[in-house]
């Protein structure tokens, strides 16, 4: 903790695929897992490399981008304003479903609450009012109902199937 106050400290993070990231301390401290690493090893040297064996470079780069922007928003007192919403919308616009899932897994491992909440909401929005087939494909789930069973449950919940969006 004693080192938190020092100016412009750089934290080194190493991903599962062996890439080294240099991250500004305030951004790296958004990752609960990194923060507790330094809390537990107070006398860790400044050039300590924190291994992140469950995260690969691509999602980590995306996460750093997100956290960096949000740290700045907070510093400028812009948290919760339209600026943030605009950034968030832009941020996810180009992300594929697969990328989103990689991000949420990584954000979960790194334990970044704000980003996790945001990704959860984003994925839920993508699933909203989609067909059952789309949801299955999204989560990679096999349909294990027999056609008769499926027909029976579908009849019971006809209202849920009115006006489903195209996938």
């Amino acid at each position: 903790m004693s080192k938190l106050g020092q100016a412009k400290r750089i934290i080194f993070l190493k991903t599962a695929d062996g890439q080294l990231f240099e991250v500004d301390e305030p951004v790296a401290m958004e990752f609960e897992i990194v923060k507790s690493f330094f809390d537990e090893n107070e006398d860790a040297a400044d050039d300590t490399v924190v291994p992140l064996p469950n995260v690969s470079a691509e999602p980590l780069a995306g996460i750093i981008e997100f956290c960096k922007a949000h740290v700045e928003f907070r510093a400028n007192g812009a948290a919760g304003k339209d600026e943030v919403k605009k950034f968030n919308a832009e941020y996810i616009k180009e992300k594929s479903n697969e990328q989103l899932k990689e991000l949420i897994l990584a954000a979960n491992y790194l334990n970044i609450k704000e980003m996790l909440d945001f990704l959860t909401e984003t994925i839920a929005n993508r699933l909203k009012n989609k067909s059952v087939e789309y949801v299955r494909a999204f989560f990679g789930i096999e349909n294990d109902f027999t056609p008769q069973e499926e027909e029976a449950v579908r009849k019971e919940y006809e209202w849920a199937f009115e006006g489903v969006d195209e996938d």
Binding site: L127, K128, K130, V132, I141, W159
Partner: peptide, 14 residues
């Protein structure tokens, strides 16, 4: 976080 309508549909997934 899904709406009721979407939530009802998850029963058919598996």
């Amino acid at each position: 976080s899904l709406s009721i309508t979407s939530l009802a549909k998850i029963k058919f997934v598996c």
